[in-house]
Design a protein around this nucleic acid. Structure first.
Length: 487
RNA sequence: GGCUCGUUGGUCAAGCGGUUAAGACGCCGCCCUCUCACGGCGGAAACAGCGGUUCGAUUCCGCUACGGGCUACCA
């Protein structure tokens, strides 16, 4: 049988990385076997609905490369794919009534106040277990209230005895006492189904074979199974994934900062990096590879290898991975991506395509995010104020006095040079250094400090000479010499 | 509180009865080197605890501890 999975988000905002990973696993479970991946919008909570969020879902999915085979935007055989539209056709109501007829569900007219009075405060948490109060209503009483338009919901009727077992592909069999099963609401008083109900009905109607979701749903799964059984429907394969947590080991939330796919891409993380990274949070391939494209993932994804324990979202490693992708990137693509950032940092180079490209190539192996660039190359635009202590370097055997001497000594030579291209420069200067009996570092270190005013730069002294050009370079070196002389 | 799930270095994560307990990020050191980065080499760093089962447990079972999740007319 062809595998069918679904990603069923609620349109409430940006795509959380936990949801992204769930979507990814759903996609991979299906695609690894050549199955279908569908998108269903679960907008049964009008309170939480956020305008534009559906478009955001389409965009995120597209950026992540998770293209769906069926969905609201592209249609399909089992539509509509938006639950609010399905409500209009009355399917949830119809199925709920079927359950009522089978005594697997019942109408409940309890008021908010009564429900409130049922709540118990345990450990500072409000806990409510419905007491089946309305189950005792007679058929006549129910019809009367219904006719009178008394607000009501439909609740699942769970037994108080016995056990319910369900099977999860990762966790195995999980058994729960039926007494633990609350009579959850199937149809809300506004006529909309709850997630708990719509989810089961739609998964069945849409032919979903593998239900992949976060393991926060494990505890409600027995109730879903009772629903499937009550209808006589085939129970899907369950794959509950471990949660992704923050550094505090708490479920990743909006509070923990950059927790959505869009937040991350806004920061400069490549979509394919986020996908790659998130795939490895809770799953690993058989071999040791870590850099995996989406198609690599499709090829080697085996859901049996999904782990059971939660994973901490390690921002540090995400950065590393982004750096890996950048290093492996085609230089042209990197340039296209970084050019704006570079021009912003060194506006003086605007228009000098050649130098901009040189800067890009220097920086490509050194950044993890393009936003790291400005800080790295700002000195090219303007020499920062610096402390002459920078001239001291133990390994290079330089100090302020030696540097003052070297700078003064090499200045006329640099003035005499015409070709300020790196290779020529490096050859000539090396020659000069040898002739004067110095070591490379002894001369190049102070030179680089004078040119950049920084202890570390993304390139060597001669490359800075080339980028700055003769005039600016000489002026900086003179300035350095003066600075040292004044000490 | 109840139910339920989990627990290998700081983090991700191999391992599925016998291993010197992989690898990656991060950290440290060395090499390369016109600084840094890249690259190369090396290092520190883990089976939560206690009982079983077994000739033998990181691996199987139980208990404890710790952590997570659920306990809504949210999904």
């Amino acid at each position: 049988m062809k595998i069918r999975t679904r990603y069923a988000p609620s349109p409430t905002g940006r795509m959380h990385v936990g949801n992204l990973r769930t979507a990814l696993y759903e996609y991979l479970v299906a695609k690894h076997e050549g199955g279908d991946f569908l998108l269903r919008i679960e907008d049964t909570d009008q309170e939480r609905y956020v305008e534009g969020a559906v478009d955001l879902i389409y965009e995120s999915l597209k950026d992540a490369g998770l293209s769906h085979d069926e969905g609201p935007d592209i249609g399909g055989e089992v539509g509509p794919y938006v639950q609010s539209e399905r409500v209009k056709s009355g399917i949830y109501q119809k199925y709920a009534e079927e359950l009522v007829a089978k005594k697997e569900a019942y109408y409940c007219f309890c008021t908010k106040e009564r429900l409130e009075s049922l709540k118990q405060n345990i450990d500072g948490k409000e806990v409510l277990m419905y007491d089946k109060h309305c189950l005792s209503l007679t058929e006549e009483e129910v019809q009367e209230k219904l006719a009178a338009g008394v607000p009501h919901v439909i609740r699942q009727n769970n037994p108080r005895e016995g056990k319910t077992v369900f099977h999860d592909e990762l966790y195995g069999d999980i058994e729960v006492d039926n007494a633990e099963l609350d009579d959850m609401i199937l149809i809300k008083s506004d006529g909309y189904p709850t997630y708990n109900f719509a989810n089961v009905v739609d998964d069945h109607l849409m032919g979903i074979t593998h239900v992949v979701r976060g393991n926060e749903y494990i505890s409600s799964t027995p109730k879903y199974n009772r629903l499937y059984e009550a209808f006589g429907w085939e129970i899907p394969v369950y794959i509950h994934c471990p949660l992704i947590t923050d550094e505090e080991h708490k479920k990743l939330s909006k509070r923990s900062g950059h927790s959505s796919f869009e937040d991350l891409t806004d920061l400069g993380f490549l979509p394919e990096v986020v996908v790659n990274f998130v795939a490895l949070l809770g799953w690993s391939p058989e071999d040791n590879r870590e850099i995996l494209s989406l198609s690599d993932l499709v090829e080697c994804f085996d859901y049996h290898r999904i782990s059971k324990s939660p994973a901490v979202f390690d921002y540090q490693k995400l950065r590393w991975m982004n750096g890996e992708y950048i290093k492996a990137m085609d230089p042209q693509r990197f340039y296209d991506m970084a050019a704006a950032e570079i021009k912003k940092a060194v506006p003086g180079f605007e228009g000098d395509e050649d130098k901009l490209r040189k800067i890009a190539s220097m920086v490509q192996s050194r950044v993890e995010l393009v936003s790291d660039i400005p800080e790295m190359i700002g000195f090219l635009e303007e020499l920062p104020d610096y402390d002459t202590a920078l001239y001291c370097h133990k390994k290079m055997k330089t100090d302020e006095a030696s540097s003052a001497g070297v700078l003064k000594e090499i200045l006329p030579f640099l003035e005499s040079l015409e070709d300020y291209h790196n290779d020529a420069l490096y050859a000539k200067i090396s020659e000069w250094i040898t002739e004067h009996g110095y070591k490379n570092g002894y001369v190049l270190w102070p030179l680089r400090i004078a040119l950049s005013g920084q202890a570390t730069t993304p390139c060597g002294a001669t490359e800075i000479l080339e980028l700055l050009g003769k005039e600016e370079s000489l002026s900086r070196i003179r300035k350095g010499a003066e600075l040292l002389a004044s000490k």
